[in-house]
């Protein structure tokens, strides 16, 4: 089978590899690039576990033909923390017990990040809307919604501190 060369930026790292025809992005990220942070759940576009950002836009990696990301930037949860410092979303999820089995967490974090990138002070309904494409089996969603609101507040306060 023909293999297609593919280059893209994965969390600041230039990445080059060969992909099979028809390969989806989640497979390429996990098996090709070795980034296990996005999860493969349903591969049907229903669960949101594979949610990543492509050029800053929220996407499902399982429904993305890998070769279409040529030259583009992909952000996954693996790039969320700044070295040893957790992203405020990660810290808020941890402090708020917003994960149990953790399988949905990567996708939830990316969906939340996409929200907060554009809407730093979201309403509760906006948070609910933002994670409406991500299934969680364990928490009943409430701790996740609370954690995202908490992270938004931390980031606004952090931003003010940084500005001062």
């Amino acid at each position: 089978m023909a293999r297609t060369p593919l280059t893209f930026t994965l969390n600041d790292a230039e990445t080059a590899l060969f992909v099979d025809e028809g390969a989806n992005l989640i497979d390429v990220l996990r098996r090709g690039a070795g980034d296990l942070s996005p999860k493969q759940g349903c591969a049907q576009g229903n669960c949101g576990a594979c949610t990543v950002l492509i050029d800053g836009e929220l996407r499902l990696a399982c429904l993305t033909l890998a070769e279409t990301v040529e030259g583009r930037r992909i952000d996954t949860v693996a790039g969320l923390a700044g070295g040893p410092d957790l992203h405020p979303l990660q810290a808020a999820f941890m402090d708020g017990f917003a994960a149990q089995c953790g399988f949905c967490t990567s996708g939830m974090l990316m969906a939340a990040r996409a929200l907060l990138d554009r809407t730093p002070d979201p309403s509760r309904d906006e948070v609910i809307e933002a994670i409406s494409g991500n299934l969680c089996r364990c928490t009943g969603y409430e701790p996740i919604v609370d954690a995202i609101l908490d992270a938004a507040q931390r980031m606004r306060q952090g931003g003010r501190r940084a500005a001062q």
């Binding site: 028809g22 591969a43 576009g45």
Partner: peptide
Amino acid sequence: YLAGGTLLMRAVNYGYPGIDRVVR
């Protein structure tokens, strides 16, 4: 034809037999 992929890639992922070629 591959547009947004939400229908076609799902079929590709599950090895739906009615797809020989994908057009971009």
